[in-house]
Structures are given as C-alpha cells and as structure tokens.
Design a protein around this nucleic acid. Structure first.
Lengths: 136, 136
DNA sequence: TCTACATTTGCAACATTGTTGCAATAACAT
DNA sequence: ATGTTATTGCAACAATGTTGCAAATGTAGA
C-alpha cells in the first residue's frame, strides 16, 4: 500500500511531508531517528513539520515511536511492507555498539498482571546489548 | 544504610552532591526526574554535576535510570530503603495521566530468547496507562 | 474547474535534557 | 598537614522537541 492510499484510508490529507516520511520509513530496514529520516528526505522539511506529522501519524496508528534512551528515539511504520506488523506488540533490541535498533518480531511480551485499578494502554520492551554483527 | 556508607562501600568519594542525590532518592516514594531531584536538593548543585554524579552512581550499580519517554527520564536508587531491590529486574508502570512512575516489583520480565549472536546486557519494560488513582 | 474553508506548513523563538573542556576546589591516603 | 587525584562549577554547546502565528496547501463542494 503506498503513502497516498495509507493517508487516504486514515482520513489524513495527502501532504508532501507526510508522504515523504512514510516513504522514507517504508524504505528503511530498521526504525530510524528523526535525523536519519530527515536526511533521507534530503533535509527538505522543517523539523517542526516532522514532529507534527509524526504525531499525527502516530495518533492514526500508522507510526510507532520507540524511545530507546534519551537522544535515541526511533520511528517505524506500523503497516505494509515495513518492519512493524500491525498491532503485533514485539520487543526491540538496541545495540550498544552500533546503535542499531532491531525489531524482535518473535518476542511477544505480556500480558502483564497489573495491580488492581491499573489500566494498561501500551507497553514497550527494550533489550540492550550487542547485536550479532558486534559480538566478536 | 546511609549515603556515606554506600559511597564508601563502592569506593566512591563522599562528596556533598553525591550524598544529596542519594538522600533525595532515599526520601522519594517513586523514581524522580533530574528536575525533581534538583528541587529537592534546593537547586543547590549544577545540573552538570548531577548528570556526572548520576553516571558515576549508575556505573557503581547504585542508581537506575529509567527512560519512559523523551523528556520523561527518571532516576531511582538500587539499594537500601529505596524502591529498587538490588539486581532484581522489574517492570515499570508510567501513568499517562499523573505522570508518576511506579515500580512493579512483582513483574520480572524475561529471560528473552534472542537470535543467534545477540548478547543481552540489560533490558527495560515500560507499561503505560492509567494508575489506580487515575482510573475513575 | 474553480472557490472557499479548514488544515498544514514553515519560520522564529524557546524549553528541556544532556555533554564537553577547563580551571578551581575538595576528598582521602599517607 | 600535605600532596595527589578525582570532582565540582562554570560556560558554552548539542540534540530533541514544542508553541504561536502568518502564509501556503489540500480537499470538498459548487
């Protein structure tokens, strides 16, 4: 499904920054930071616009924001040919050496038994260590 | 165990900022942000010093840094009368409404089966939602 | 196809969190 | 008490994200 279709299906206007962001993420092999995405888009759009678009896409459920660490925030698409299969919660692996973020599709965390009165809305599992390329 | 003892036992010099940070965290009922800790210390120390002390304490295993989200980073002690029991991995619950971070001591995530060549060093589970006080 | 309206963008300014270099200071072992 | 080394405070900077507002753009409807 291409960017235009995705936007239309979610009642979002088809604007160039949104299309560019979606296409950048679709072409990515792993979740990317704002800086990486911006570079892929040719630094063609304002960071402000990126953040606002990202928020819109996230609210529409199209985008997933993964916070590895402060200064290590990554974004990924939730759909289509991207890495993130729709609505399938999975863990993420962050390599402390090469800083790549890898989706561990086979690890489905939870469900968690929360104390009485607590209500879960979303959850995130980050495993940090060394990836296969960085373990010598 | 008081701040001085803790520092001594870990071969760290007993300096006023470190003592103040430890005491601030010991008096806390939940992990705190840098801003909260600083305020508790009477804004008496440089932020630079806080970050450097926090890093030192973390490397010594005394402190645990929990990244909920960008702009929502919290710190907690790993010892003594604080919330964090030593070396017991546990999940954290972040309330989207009151922004409090609560340790879920009864949830011990993992172990995770990583792909070949991957080596885990640490992991973090953040569950976001509404806490008992915020579910109406 | 053109028009009007609501949405979105770009820009400027600012906020928060964290880092680095370096001189001055403080802690601890002797 | 003193010397050595680690730590602090300050200043400057970096990265990420937010807000207000005017200008530009997308889309539905005429």
């Amino acid at each position: 499904m291409d960017a235009a279709e995705l936007l239309h299906k979610h009642n979002l206007k088809k604007t160039s920054p949104r299309v560019a962001i979606i296409e950048a993420l679709q072409s990515a092999k792993s979740p990317m930071s704002e800086a990486e995405i911006s570079k892929l888009m040719g630094n063609h759009y304002e960071r402000t616009t990126f953040y606002r678009s990202a928020q819109t896409l996230e609210e529409a459920g199209l985008l997933h924001k993964i916070v590895v660490d402060k200064l290590q925030v990554r974004y990924a698409l939730n759909v289509g040919r991207s890495l993130h299969t729709v609505r399938t919660a999975h863990a993420h692996f962050y390599c402390n050496s090469c800083h790549e973020l890898i989706c561990l599709e086979h690890i489905h965390p939870g469900p968690y038994r929360l104390p009485a009165g607590f209500q879960s809305q979303e959850s995130e599992v980050i495993i940090k260590g060394l990836c296969d390329k960085c373990t010598l």
